[in-house]
Design a protein around this nucleic acid. Structure first.
Lengths: 158, 158
DNA sequence: AACTATTTATTAACATATTAATGAATAATC
DNA sequence: GATTATTCATTAATATGTTAATAAATAGTT
């Protein structure tokens, strides 16, 4: 087996460490975290979106998203609105202040992203995205356990 | 500009979401978290290692590593030992129980990793690793700010 | 030697991830 | 139409990430 520090998962983390700091530096100048940014980025394209779909698109798990929305509400950037059709559901929408942020933050971010893409030649970039896509689409097949007493719950699925 | 949900950073997160769950499922069966696993994985190759280097190899930031080591100590898997040369430094080493875990967990993990590698053809895998390596080696060049009043500290470096 | 600057691990404060559980609302089945 | 099962957002508990600050020890400088 090869070196652990260069295993697939570690290389993925290493890549994120190489990419994200420059973006977080921009976000922090405007008082938003990376996770909050992800939510806002989606709300700028979809004026109104359901809590669940927002979580799927932003890759933020539901329990985390609750707190993220809480803080964005606290800061006056988004609002909750309970659905009238199904009163379990909650829609999220950006306030005027939340919408205004787009014009302020996007230039710097687009610039940084262009700079990032420019650091890789077309070939490398294309191959990289293809590989990442392949990993993302791997089936989450439950593996064969080797544990003595698997502490599984009886609730069945997921 | 392209779709945000398929930007480089989101694809990196998506890839991790595709890869890590199967490993975390294994770790949890042995009562260790993914982060604790990374520490142990390194200690199995280096009987004794300095706190700082451990943080660099495991990609765990120092403040997080303090707590991770605390909990590994609590569970009797590792031990702290203050250096005699430089009494600021702390070495970390695995206990007998910590070392014993290797033989129990590695088979399942190696198996899962082989299964993962097998899901990608050699070409894709090689290109992917090359791309990730390129991203990891990007210089963390401080960007040009567009913020009105950059709230930077005066501590300079880092 | 005294003073200053740097390094090392740690703490503090806040935000997020992970897993399991809960309450309210809706859907399914009887 | 009452019971049961499922969905949805949320809470709870624990672990980790992020940024800034701190205390102790060492290194550098005068």
């Amino acid at each position: 087996m090869q070196d652990f520090t260069h295993s697939m998962s570690m290389m993925l983390y290493r890549a994120l460490n190489g990419v994200m700091p420059r973006f977080r530096a921009i976000f922090s100048e405007f008082g938003v975290t990376e996770t909050q940014w992800r939510v806002l980025r989606i709300l700028w394209e979809r004026k109104r979106i359901g809590f669940r779909e927002l979580g799927e698109l932003s890759l933020i798990p539901a329990p985390s998203l609750v707190g993220v929305i809480d803080r964005l509400c606290r800061d006056g950037l988004v609002e909750r609105e309970r659905s009238t059709q199904d009163r379990r559901q909650v829609d999220i929408l950006a306030t005027a202040a939340g919408q205004a942020l787009e014009a302020q933050v996007m230039p710097a971010v687009s610039n940084a992203y262009a700079e990032l893409s420019g650091a890789l030649d077309k070939q490398t970039h294309a191959h990289l995205m293809a590989g990442l896509s392949a990993l993302a689409n791997l089936a989450h097949a439950p593996h064969q356990s080797a544990a003595p007493n698997p502490p599984r719950t009886l609730t069945g699925s997921q």
